[in-house]
Nucleic acid binder design. Structure first.
Lengths: 240, 240
DNA sequence: CATTTTATCTTTACGATGTAAAGATAAAGC
DNA sequence: GCTTTATCTTTACATCGTAAAGATAAAATG
């Protein structure tokens, strides 16, 4: 009884109830205007937009098929036709995230300066993207519900890795083809990626808060990243 | 969820149905033996054991309150009394994971050798723990459903960080107290933790597979870690 | 030792979710 | 103009988390 009451009390007013939607549609069609047409026209993109809004507002846990459908103002089963699954929707959204991420990294890599400066700029861009889009970054690197067999996601994630690998390894030796990597190249790529990815994950999880609090006043995520990289990036393999 | 669907399709024979449990208890009590006593006696620990089994068998998505109760052979609401929430159960399990993790790290740090060798041993132990207990590691570092206000989890996680920070920073300067960190100390700690944590996450997510495949034959997760650290760990801050 | 209290466990119930299946509607194709 | 197909809605069901109430046994108390 108490729970029921609380649930009723806390229940948000759902504007997009089935009945309400139907009434709107009927009224609109009677009036001659198509306020909420039966066929949306661009529901797929609208659902992805809605999903991103839900994700950044309510976090990964709040990103449900039904919540996305509500946000888009359609019935709860509408997404099924476009994405089949929650996995499908989430994977498509992650693909968008990777694409934007790739663009941000490319932009940062095209900045002027020495190779080392450009590498630092990329690292900063990496962390900045995650900080600006924590939900998206979590979706891309934290969720287990991604289907990498989907071409869109597979390609976007692949491009992301290729960009990183190419930019990192290009500093030491020649271009990195699609094949063979020397152990030093492999280690260099793994080190750069692990360092920045690990830093980002720990930062988003709030696990660097202690370190930042105990560091000299004024130290923040950016300056700590800077200090962390300064002792690492310049120490490139001298040759061998 | 996909897992839900699969569970429905491949629904296993539930030995621990309510009715079945009741029948067993009645029969047992009629026979004089206490096969399934109403009061379990040590249900809390049994539930944690069951939770770990479920976690390593069905992954994070399969770790539900009801699944744990089934695994332990009690009613689905039994865990509530001991853990209040799914968050509660998950947090207690994560605390156990951190405790074991701390023990493994401590053991690795106590090994003989130079400071650098001990640091490498710790890094290997870090990755090895995650590889041996991927579910647990995911629970500790991937889930958002942890309640760090719980003393058990808070202390275990805190000890984990303290051990890492102490062992890392002790190599460069004096002991790391509970307060002030120089920017170099902070950067050194962040670098070590980010590197090994990022490597572990990428490894568990299968994102290092490409690199490993393209690396020289025979390269595996351990040897790549070794190569990655070799160029990093020895380059300690010379002094300033 | 008998009775009361408390802790533990089960049953029942409700709202939420994912997803399948069937019905409704409108666009597209012929 | 009619049929087909794509899109969206309704309905239905199994599952989940969690609250509340009932059942049972251990502990406390007199």
């Amino acid at each position: 009884m108490t729970s029921k009451m609380e649930q009723v009390r806390a229940r948000p007013r759902r504007i997009a109830t089935s009945a309400a939607r139907l009434r709107v549609r009927r009224a609109a069609s009677a009036a001659g205007e198509a306020a909420t047409p039966y066929h949306h026209g661009a529901l797929r993109d609208a659902l992805l937009d809605a999903a991103e809004r839900v994700l950044e507002r309510d976090g990964l846990a709040g990103l449900t098929l039904r919540a996305v459908a509500r946000e888009a103002g359609v019935s709860h089963a509408a997404p099924t036709h476009h994405f089949k699954d929650l996995t499908g929707l989430v994977s498509e959204l992650a693909a968008i995230g990777f694409t934007r991420f790739n663009a941000a990294m490319k932009a940062a890599g095209d900045s002027p300066g020495t190779p080392v400066e450009r590498a630092m700029a990329r690292a900063r861009a990496y962390v900045a993207y995650a900080q600006a889009n924590p939900g998206m970054y979590g979706l891309m690197f934290r969720t287990e519900r991604l289907d990498y067999s989907r071409p869109s996601l597979h390609e976007a994630a692949e491009a992301s890795f290729a960009g990183l690998a190419g930019s990192v390894a290009a500093r030491s030796e020649g271009q990195v083809g699609n094949e063979e990597l020397s152990i030093d190249q492999a280690a260099t790529i793994a080190r750069a990626w692990s360092l920045v990815h690990g830093y980002t994950m720990l930062l988003l999880d709030g696990r660097l808060a202690d370190i930042l609090r105990r560091a000299p006043a004024g130290t923040n995520a950016e300056s700590l990243l800077e200090a962390m990289l300064k002792a690492t990036v310049p120490k490139l393999p001298p040759g061998a």
